[in-house]
């Protein structure tokens, strides 16, 4: 059983911060991920920066560009995860666009995931139609492919997507990109109940989640809350981004 599978057996509140690898500095990510884990993060998503992040709003776009300017690459991320794994057992998922992974090759990419201790992969531009080869190989190697569903995904499709994913899916909270505002709680609750009824796996929710109240609410309606843009935004202009991130995660977790 990998760390993600283990985590989602436990019926507890889950907070999953997103951190762009190589932001704000090339070497920031090791400290940030370890600090996040110590401050209460239940799992961490590490964003692979990409030149053309189509599903991201301005905050993550900018962090991604900064990370690339800093020299971040997929190979460096794997090296940093080796460092991270010396210090924490927190489940780690990589999140990124498909092209850098395609370029590295599914096999090489997934072998590296296994050898450094990455437990899951989220690829927002690899929908059900194209995802089978990657997902089957990932599952065979014990890495959880975390496919996405959206508010306009029909019930049958949610079933199929979660079936292919196998361990966990990611419900995008809104029709939109990262950092957008949330829809009304009523509409959200209907949607998340629909995911609950149709998904054969646990599911986390992300996009637009920013406060402690959100984290509590989404954990009632799903199996975990992903916080991205507001974690990144919170680092902008801070002299000590690690400290700032620790503080925010404690707040989001209700520990302060």
């Amino acid at each position: 059983m990998n760390r993600i599978q283990k985590l989602f057996r436990e019926p507890k509140e889950k907070l999953i911060p997103f951190l762009t690898a190589g932001y704000p500095k090339l070497e920031s990510t090791v400290e940030l991920v370890c600090a996040a884990a110590e401050s209460g993060a239940d799992m961490v998503e590490i964003g692979i920066p990409f030149s053309d992040p189509q599903a991201d709003g301005p905050v993550i776009q900018k962090s991604s560009q900064q990370a690339l300017d800093n020299g971040m690459t997929l190979n460096k991320i794997f090296e940093q995860v080796i460092q991270i794994r010396k210090r924490t057992d927190v489940p780690i998922s990589l999140m990124g666009y498909y092209n850098p992974i395609l370029k590295m090759g599914h096999e090489t990419f997934l072998n590296r995931c296994v050898s450094v201790g990455v437990n899951g992969v989220i690829l927002p531009d690899l929908p059900l139609e194209e995802a089978t080869p990657f997902c089957e190989l990932a599952k065979a190697k014990g890495v959880s492919p975390i496919l996405l569903v959206a508010p306009n995904s029909p019930n049958e499709r949610i079933k199929k997507i979660s079936g292919l994913a196998g361990d966990l899916i990611y419900a995008v909270s809104i029709l939109g990109i990262t950092g957008n505002n949330l829809a009304s709680k009523d509409a959200l609750a209907d949607y998340l109940n629909r995911v609950r009824a149709n998904s054969v796996t646990p599911f986390v929710v992300g996009f637009g989640i920013s406060s402690r109240d959100d984290v509590v609410w989404f954990n009632k309606h799903s199996d975990g809350a992903v916080v991205g843009s507001s974690i990144i935004k919170n680092m902008v202009g801070k002299s000590d981004p690690v400290n700032a991130t620790e503080l925010l995660i404690k707040i989001l977790k209700g520990n302060i």
């Binding site: 690899l126 929908p127 496919l147 959206a150 306009n152």
Partner: peptide, 19 residues
């Protein structure tokens, strides 16, 4: 039918755009 020209083409988009 899947929009492929052999290995080229297809639909590599966020889930929201599939419908």
């Amino acid at each position: 039918a899947r929009g492929h020209f052999e290995k080229f083409g297809g639909k590599f988009v966020p889930e929201t755009l599939i419908p």
